[in-house]
Design a protein around this nucleic acid. Structure first.
Lengths: 206, 206, 206, 206
DNA sequence: CATGAATGAGATTTCATTCAT
DNA sequence: AATGAATGAAATCTCATTCAT
């Protein structure tokens, strides 16, 4: 009960609440989640939540913003691009999978955003801008550079970057809804990389 | 307020209610939807809903079952498989896209199932068994046959069928959440088919 | 489907409904009983009940009036009274028990009246007038006559007739609420008669 | 609308609600009572009831348990039994009447239990165990002892204790349903005691 | 800062009653 | 006479939000 420890607890409170909110919201969805349950998870009472957050809506939005992955760092790929487009591409894919699989928040938050598409539209947009945006941009640059240098086929530049990532998104969603039916991540990633390589490869005609 | 035939109105009632339920549930999600709103959409009172459905949960489940696409018919692909595995494969992909894009119910119902994953688990499973199951099975057969006949590379037989479809699922989800950001379907499908062909093609090295 | 049988069915309908109403009302009480259940028991629909009865309240009241024992016939006791007051008294008690035990309606209707005391006051009064009234009157006459002839003690005339019957009412209520705890009727009646005889007997001092 | 101490109000709330619940339930019966009315009687809103009680059923059951007389204390009779069985018997009867007449809760609660026999069976049993049980037990002992010492007739030991109390139960029920028709309690009790004395008295024939 | 009692609006559900057929 | 679809009022119960302490 020292001043310090109390102050520390106070500092940590909002974060604790956000994490509890994450658990409950991802378990039950926005509307079906009760503030009581969130509070109970933290070990405080409902009133306390209102000390830190204006209302349920704000709590949800703040949770999504605070707990979802910060802007994906794409600088490594661009650096690598100087050496090899193919290797930058593979590197990017490996990172995207690694990040998605290690981050228990982003997985469920994506599901929440799909669920609350009509209720929290602005959040979907924000998610896309922060996460998908930079990745798509890098991909675009990689495809462009690769086709310019001849490492890739010329048509590679006109492939929609989203297509390159679409198997990942498909995998992600399957794993979210029917985890027991989703294939093993490593082997799926292997096929994914193989597929991308063949798709961008210069056509080798005999 | 024309009365018309009572019997006729009665016949149509359950379907009318299910369609109104679909609109509201897909707009707001399960928990946030009010039976009042569904009733208002049909132009009846809340009580009428209970004449036809036991409760909100049953209404939701019945709606999902009744309005989602019935079992996907895979016989055409298998017939075509006798002639050409590649063409059966392309045919299958084109049909899956065509069906998904033309059916406004299935699109949103898939979203609802993603959203309500924890609340209505059995429905996800049912959806998978009815829709995904047969398609995956056919894909498996096509890959197998193609690799046996030499039309595809030998390794094609060991590709997870889900991988073949994963870009579709990714596209579907993007279109669901951020329709304005999703690429044009035809061109995406074109890339998808191209990608699949290259993935299963026998390696042609000079 | 002859005219006759249909007419017969029609004739019997109201009684059938009253009997079904009795079963449901005595099982659940007035407020908790649903007209739907009564109708289902008869094998008709709710609407049919309204063909014969104005509303739920009327149905209940009619059921109580129609199914409860008609006015108790007290003439035999008064005839017997000419010969012996003691024997008239015993006869009356035996009859009251026999009637109460054989009539499955009256038992439960009494319970309903106790339950609905505040909601259907007039019925309690009517029940008392029809059933208890004549019996009390006869008892009064028996006590009076017996004390006049010296068969009973002089004070017997001033015993409240209700007291004479009160063990019966107590037994009845116990049997209604906790049937497995209520003593065997015959032996209880035996004690009751013994008790009454002693109560009215002239005092025998040595 | 004085506020007073919040804590004090909180302390008293559950009891206040139970008392209001008693009034409404005994006025209208279980099913016909509205929580709205109970709340209005306390001067709070419906929601407040749910702060303290899980649901209507629990409220009813708690009310019965909390407001009905705690176990009847039978030690005085057993003490008195050393001196005189007859006096213990009279004392017991007087106490039972005094308690029943003075306790406005038990009277109505007994009526509710009769009314709700099928809906709240366990409560009837509880009532019997707590209230009737001990009294019957003492009566049994008194009858036994009295017949052993010769103060009562030998047969007194085999009288069902319930018979001894049955006039009381009869009186109680009559007073409950038709209070204006029930005899004056004192005189009824007088007859009751007289009756019991004669019933257990050794037969004195000249 | 934290509590938790109280609120009150609103949600689901029930059911007596009506009425066109 | 009988039906049963439809109603609508009302009942139970929930829960985000407030506020005195």
């Amino acid at each position: 009960m020292t001043k310090g420890s109390r102050a520390a607890a106070k500092q940590a409170r909002p974060r604790e609440i956000l994490e509890a909110a994450f658990e409950e919201f991802s378990l039950r969805g926005y509307a079906a989640t009760r503030l009581d349950d969130i509070a109970a998870r933290v070990g405080v009472t409902k009133g306390t939540i209102y000390v830190y957050f204006e209302n349920k809506e704000t709590l949800f939005e703040t949770m999504v913003v605070e707990l979802s992955t910060p802007e994906h760092d794409t600088t490594p790929y661009l650096a690598e691009l100087e050496t090899s487009a193919a290797s930058a591409l593979e590197h990017l894919l490996r990172n995207v999978y690694a990040e998605a699989l290690s981050d228990r928040y982003s997985r469920e938050i994506l599901r929440l955003l799909i669920a609350e598409k009509n209720t929290f539209q602005s959040l979907s947009r924000r998610f896309k801008d922060n996460f998908a945006g930079p990745v798509f941009g890098s991909l675009q640059q990689i495809l462009q550079k690769g086709s310019e240098t001849g490492e890739f086929a010329p048509q590679a530049a006109s492939i929609d970057p989203f297509f390159i990532l679409s198997p990942f998104l498909g995998y992600f969603v399957l794993d979210l809804v029917l985890p027991e039916d989703s294939p093993e991540a490593d082997s799926f990633l292997g096929t994914h990389i193989e597929m991308v390589k063949r798709l961008v490869a210069p056509i080798a005609k005999p």
